[in-house]
Amino acid sequence: MGVATLLAVMAGVVLGGAAAAWLFRAALVALSRGALRRSLRGAPLTACFGMLVIALYLGVAILAPLLAPYGERAVVTVQFAPWSADHWLGSDHLGRDMASRLIYGARNTVGIALATTALAFMVGTTLGLWAAVVGGWLDGALSRAVDVLMAIPSLIFALLLLTIFGTSILTLVLVIAAVDATRVYRIARAVAQGIVVMDYIEAARLRGEGGARLIFREVLPNAAAPLVAEFGLRFCFVFLAISALSFLGLGIQPPTADWGSMVRENATLITFGDVTPLLPAGAIALLTVAVNFVVDWQLHRASGLRE
């Protein structure tokens, strides 16, 4: 492929994406009301593109059994079949339909990543807010423990834990959630420390509130905005970590359709110049880009950063 055609294709993709994003924004603005409408009107095209992609992925994940032409694990044709009308994207190394597995992969890969991020957030936020509210020795002990855990590179720590506990989906979710909860703890504690010194927290304490009520009713609502943006970022990290582990053969195990392991299983095709194995990797990349675009917009709005 010449450089000129490559540039033309890239320009076409960018223009197409921008047009789709513009249409999606127009539709959202038409459908929404009030403050939501005002903020959507000011959303940059990149953020609209991100929201469009996220909506598409969610749709595919929820409707997977309706959209997929074949079953997730069914062997339907010869190995490494080329693209055809029956099998849009050909077949994989066992003769399973590639397009169907891609569609089911949206459900498995994204679902597991979401569950892991949610778990990491529940643990990390609860501990972080608790440390900030109670303070003193509890805060010190928890923070030093987290410091030590964070001094080990996260992928290496995850690999160590997977060696000890073995590889299954449950251990994968628990291990990644545990590793990422330390990062969430840091953010939640930092945010909450600015909040616990406020007058209304003192008033709540004087009213006799304490423990869980103080954490979840008084501190959490006011810490929510930065934590939501962090949730998006954290999801990207978790999603990439799970994909990387699956790609290494240590994450989601076959025969479950998963984008990371699909790349690994079919990687031999790449040496023959076939782009099919890149599609699941591209699907991972596209979703992460989309989430990052939306988070970037939200962070920009929240910080009021203007140059």
Partner: peptide, 25 residues
């Protein structure tokens, strides 16, 4: 900036295989 944000989001193996396909082939 947009390029950087995109590059951050790519899994390493995606970048690696794109390079293999493009420069290696």
């Amino acid at each position: 900036n947009a390029g950087a944000l995109t590059a951050i989001s790519f899994p390493e193996f995606f970048v690696a295989y794109v390079l293999i396909l493009w420069l290696g082939q």
